[in-house]
């Protein structure tokens, strides 16, 4: 196994949760909603998937009785549902009640992490574990299974060695890009995020688009949490294990200039930067921490460059973070 192939593969695996998160957040932000609850929503997506898998595993008499189809479907739906519901709370608060988006988002993140830790701890206790960690390794096998042989040389290792969710992440990013760029739905959604008053005057249902994009975006982000625990961690849930990946996903939105297909490349770069301190041998503790700041430094650099160039197309949606209400006269 060459060093390069190993590096690329590990960077990809690190990047996939971020890609899910940033694609979901881009979809949300295109409707003008700045959902800072994404880290919490991804966390909820992860624990929801684990809960689904855990109860499915518990309901079986033996691991052999496990159906591959259900083993994937149940955690997948659980994650989508969990993340979608939390996003719905955010959507209701910010769109219907017009609460401040920043405050609501941060509250959702706090809530999501608490929710995950609470159920993570409870399930661990149910499973008889002493620590707040929990394993659904049997289910994880189905998520980790690569489609074709991964050991067929450099190409196989770099392109074919991942679980199916990794390909789903890239597919969703491409689909969202096409949706935003090339369809009427995308045009309307972008109009809502840029100038909701104009969209409203043109007969577009602003609220429906905002709700749709926010809930769907949250659900997509939730898959990032699912991928992290089921594939990357091999089915081992441990409280607070998700780390700062949620914030990195939001940083990636800025890095990708609100374009999910740039997000694919961006997630790989972020993933690479993330594992750099692990790959480089002989780093001191302090240097490891220093390397961990790289993704954020790169994001700041991108922000500085795009702000200086002032190109309108690479700016955030014009009404991002603002609630919309029709002016009554």
């Amino acid at each position: 196994m060459s060093f390069l192939a190993n590096f690329i593969q590990r960077a990809m695996v690190q990047g996939i949760p971020l890609l899910f998160g940033s694609t979901g957040e881009i979809l949300t932000e295109k409707s003008g909603n700045l959902n800072l609850g994404i880290p919490g929503i991804m966390y909820v997506g992860g624990i929801s998937g684990v809960m689904g898998a855990f109860y499915y595993e518990q309901s079986l008499s033996s691991p052999e009785a496990m159906s591959g189809f259900l083993a994937i479907l149940i955690p997948l739906l659980s994650a989508l549902l969990g993340a979608g519901l939390v996003s719905l709370i955010y959507a209701f608060l910010t769109i219907t009640l017009r609460a401040n988006q920043n405050v609501t988002g941060l509250a959702i993140t706090t809530f999501g992490v608490g929710f995950g830790n609470f159920f993570g701890g409870s399930l661990a206790k149910l499973a008889g574990s002493e620590t707040a960690s929990l394993s659904v390794v049997e289910t994880s096998r189905y998520f980790k299974a690569s489609i074709v042989g991964s050991d067929s040389g450099f190409f196989g290792q770099v392109f074919l060695s991942y679980g199916f969710l990794a390909y789903v992440a890239i597919l969703i990013a491409v689909v969202v890009t096409v949706l935003l760029r090339r369809t009427r739905l995308g045009l309307h959604l972008r109009a809502v995020g840029e100038n909701p008053a104009t969209a409203d005057a043109a007969g577009i249902n602003v609220g429906a688009y905002k709700y749709g994009a926010t809930v769907l975006g949250g659900a997509v982000a939730g898959l990032g949490g699912l991928y992290y625990v089921m594939d990357y961690m091999g089915g081992i849930w441990s409280n607070n294990g998700f780390g700062d990946r949620g914030w990195l996903a939001i940083a990636l939105v800025i890095f990708a200039l609100w374009n999910p297909s740039y997000g694919i490349l961006g997630s790989f770069i972020f993933g690479g930067l993330y594992i750099l301190p692990v790959i480089i041998p002989g780093l001191s503790r302090s240097m490891v921490e220093f390397f961990a700041t790289f993704p954020y430094l790169v994001t700041i650099a991108v922000l500085v460059v795009t702000s200086m160039r002032k190109k309108r197309e690479t700016q955030p949606p014009a009404s991002l973070g603002l609630s919309y209400f029709r002016e009554e006269r």
Partner: peptide, 11 residues
């Protein structure tokens, strides 16, 4: 005017 600045005339 009720126009989206970032869009083209046609859009």
């Amino acid at each position: 005017f009720k126009l989206v600045d970032l869009f083209t005339a046609t859009e």
